[in-house]
Amino acid sequence: MRSPRTRGRSGRPLSLLLALLCALRAKVCGASGQFELEILSMQNVNGELQNGNCCGGARNPGDRKCTRDECDTYFKVCLKEYQSRVTAGGPCSFGSGSTPVIGGNTFNLKASRGNDRNRIVLPFSFAWPRSYTLLVEAWDSSNDTVQPDSIIEKASHSGMINPSRQWQTLKQNTGVAHFEYQIRVTCDDYYYGFGCNKFCRPRDDFFGHYACDQNGNKTCMEGWMGPECNRAICRQGCSPKHGSCKLPGDCRCQYGWQGLYCDKCIPHPGCVHGICNEPWQCLCETNWGGQLCDKDLNYCGTHQPCLNGGTCSNTGPDKYQCSCPEGYSGPNCEIA
């Protein structure tokens, strides 16, 4: 077999650049994923090309098998939009790539799955459409700058595939050579959905506090709520009108309100015997008056200043008058 000629994957630097851009600016990249293909086995019993010639040398006159050299087999892949009637021409609109030389006439790579040499990765940054057309071609490398490479066999497949970690196996069982391969579509990290176009990256910072479920939905951490999980859940009972919080379990009062639940107004400074319904009010309790509710309107009842059976009459805020019984006098009937 001729010395292998290595063929790198098509578009790999571009895919790395796209992945970097997506990581830095995830909101700009609407989708991100990759179409993967792995060659599993190849069977070319006679070492022939599609045109019937030998990959190298002439045929044995007896059994008609190619004798001089085995094929240097590598694969090309073209991925494009779905076609009900597949045409070989036209651009590979979803991507293209190739393997290096991975074997001779016949080989089996099932035991070495995950080997990069027999895998082609086609990254995409558009919403995966699920339906596709795939062209797979086996080629013989001439290892010659003058002699062109020659095609051994080709296969085409049109179908639908959803993103999954599971592989789907396909076979080419007609023509001079048979080969088996597997395909799958996977979303990149933080991308979800059938189109790999739903973005969700767990975070716990100013912009949100959430994890992501298997469908890419945000699940808020304990103590947080809202579409972006950036609204803290305040202390139970915290007034929704007069209290708020920036951290879970907190209850910060608005100006003019106080209390554990921010449901108590702050009265006017200096208010003595008054209450409030709104901040800075001083609504006097019964029998109290004045701007600060510090004037006693029922001095008689509060202090009972009249002595010796005198009768007390309220005459104004903090004022009274005693009517003394016979034989007593003085402001409080204290003089006998």
Rank of each mutant, 00 (worst) to 15 (best):
Y261H: 06
C55G: 08
Y132S: 08
C200W: 03
Q254P: 09
Q254K: 02
R201S: 07
C212G: 04
N217I: 13
W139C: 09
L307F: 15
Y181N: 00
C29F: 14
A127G: 07
I151T: 12
A232V: 06
N173I: 08
N115I: 11
S158T: 05
I161V: 07
R68P: 11
N118D: 11
F199I: 02
Y261S: 05
G175D: 03
C333F: 03
K76E: 14
D263V: 04
G52V: 07
S125C: 11
V136E: 00
K241T: 09
R12G: 06
N53K: 04
A31V: 06
T99K: 03
C29G: 05
S3Y: 15
V101F: 11
P227A: 09
N60Y: 15
D149H: 09
W280R: 09
Q34K: 08
I39L: 02
V28M: 02
A26V: 14
P163S: 11
Q281H: 07
D205Y: 03
S164N: 05
C54R: 01
R9G: 12
N143I: 10
A155T: 10
G114D: 09
W288G: 00
A111T: 08
K198Q: 13
G256D: 09
T174S: 05
Q254L: 07
M221V: 12
I183S: 01
R252G: 12
N115Y: 09
D188V: 06
P148R: 04
L21R: 01
D296N: 10
N287D: 11
A232P: 08
G33D: 03
S125T: 10
P4S: 14
G226V: 12
E70V: 13
L283P: 01
R9W: 15
C220R: 02
Q50R: 04
N118Y: 08
C312R: 00
D63A: 04
K80N: 15
S131Y: 01
A336T: 11
I39V: 08
A58P: 05
L170M: 01
S84C: 15
E222G: 11
R85P: 14
L109F: 07
R12S: 14
C306F: 01
G195V: 03
G249C: 06
Y320N: 11
Q50H: 10
L17R: 00
E285D: 00
C196Y: 05
L40P: 03
N173H: 11
T99M: 10
C29S: 05
S329T: 08
W257G: 03
L18P: 00
S96P: 07
E137K: 00
R12P: 04
K76I: 15
C78F: 02
W128S: 11
G301A: 00
C92F: 00
Q258E: 14
D263G: 11
D204G: 12
G274A: 01
I335M: 14
G309V: 12
N105T: 15
C276F: 00
F206I: 06
L17P: 00
T6R: 15
D318A: 09
K264M: 05
C187G: 05
N197K: 05
D116G: 09
W128R: 07
E222D: 11
S93I: 09
P100R: 11
A138V: 11
I266L: 12
E334Q: 06
Y192C: 05
D294Y: 05
Y210S: 13
E278K: 05
I120T: 02
V45E: 08
P91R: 09
N277S: 06
F126V: 12
G30W: 12
Y255H: 06
H157R: 05
G62R: 13
E137G: 07
D263N: 07
C306G: 02
D116N: 08
S150T: 14
P13S: 15
P269Q: 08
G237D: 05
C262W: 02
F206C: 06
R184H: 01
T286A: 03
R64G: 15
T219S: 08
D144H: 12
I39N: 01
R113G: 06
Y132C: 03
G249S: 04
G47V: 15
L40Q: 07
N332S: 13
S156C: 14
C282S: 00
N53H: 01
C92W: 00
G270E: 05
Q147E: 08
T169M: 14
D140A: 12
L21V: 00
G175R: 02
R2G: 10
G226C: 10
Q147P: 13
T186I: 06
P305S: 14
G237A: 05
K110M: 12
N115K: 06
L14R: 14
Y192S: 09
E222K: 06
C212F: 02
Q281E: 08
L18F: 10
W224S: 04
P279H: 07
N60I: 13
C322S: 01
G114A: 15
S125G: 10
Y210H: 10
R85L: 13
E326Q: 03
N197Y: 11
Q166L: 11
I120S: 01
N287I: 01
S93G: 10
M225T: 12
Y190D: 10
R252W: 09
A177S: 14
K246R: 13
V146G: 13
G90E: 03
C253R: 01
V45L: 08
S156T: 07
R130W: 05
R113L: 13
Y82D: 12
P317L: 14
C324G: 07
T73A: 14
Q34H: 09
I275T: 00
K171M: 12
W139L: 10
H303P: 03
Q258L: 11
T311A: 11
G237R: 06
G175V: 11
C265Y: 03
R235P: 07
A19V: 04
N108K: 06
D149E: 09
D188H: 05
G256V: 00
